[in-house]
Design a protein around this nucleic acid. Structure first.
Lengths: 136, 136
DNA sequence: GCTATTTAATTATCGTGATAACCAAATAGG
DNA sequence: CCTATTTGGTTATCACGATAATTAAATAGC
């Protein structure tokens, strides 16, 4: 984009840094779109993928409460709620009661969720790897 | 995020590149949010800002057709349409007839649009510059 | 010159992010 | 203990991105 042309006029001094940062922003947005495309071809999204990942990676247990997922993922509570619900409907996650807190639920991956996660990981890294190759 | 832990298991070889790219994605998304916050505090958005920029930067004229803005900006036609309408309502842009093509309109910045653009640029670069400083 | 295609803009609908406001359960503090 | 606050989850609403389909004007190709 042509924003770069303004940089020279900005007079903040660090014009190179700004130009680099803008270029970084553009690259990230391109890659983000490619990842979105990859995930949506599998009926997933970046967020759904990350939800599978954080629950799966949890060291000592196979489940997390929604609020714990929330702490790990930097997404708003309503969005997480909506997405978790969709994933339960899609059979990727299941909820069970939390005996220590009647308000909470425990979220865990179903077999389908585990299978999906395993299936999606290689392509995910491939997209990233191809992207960095492509834009040398 | 903890995706990085998967990288070592991926076995694609270029684990460093992937880790760097993931880190880049995270940074870009943080910066994007800071820019969104900056713009929304001025009743703008990244897209509205870019629309002002591309029309203002046009070398030989002070206006562009919507389709020309579209070619320059990598945003869908409906989103551009909606956003342009909002900017017209907000008094930042004005439309006039295109004598060469009855379907098209010419979009140009109002005085308020020009003022807004000038006012917003320094802070924009400041946000970027602060961000790159902050995350050394 | 008339039909066929392309192009500019628009509408309708959806996906996915956010905030604000809310309920119910849990916890804290007097 | 009993009220006050915090916390987990949910609902309602909005912002802003997308695609598909539509209309009307312009252009192309017989």
């Amino acid at each position: 984009m042509m924003i770069d042309k303004y940089v020279a006029e900005a007079g903040t001094g660090d014009t190179d840094v700004i130009a680099q940062t803008l270029s970084m922003l553009r690259k990230a947005s391109q890659l983000g779109r490619q990842l979105d495309a990859y995930f949506s071809a599998q009926n997933l999204s970046q967020l759904k993928f990350l939800i599978l990942v954080v629950i799966d990676r949890e060291p000592d247990t196979d489940h997390l409460r929604q609020s714990e997922v929330n702490q790990r993922l930097d997404v708003s509570k309503p969005v997480l709620h909506r997405t978790v619900m969709a994933m339960i409907d899609a059979g990727l996650l299941e909820r069970s009661e939390d005996l220590n807190d009647a308000r909470a639920h425990k979220l865990s991956l179903t077999e389908a969720g585990k299978t999906t996660l395993k299936a999606i990981l290689p392509g995910y890294f491939q997209v990233i790897s191809d992207f960095t190759q492509g834009s040398e």
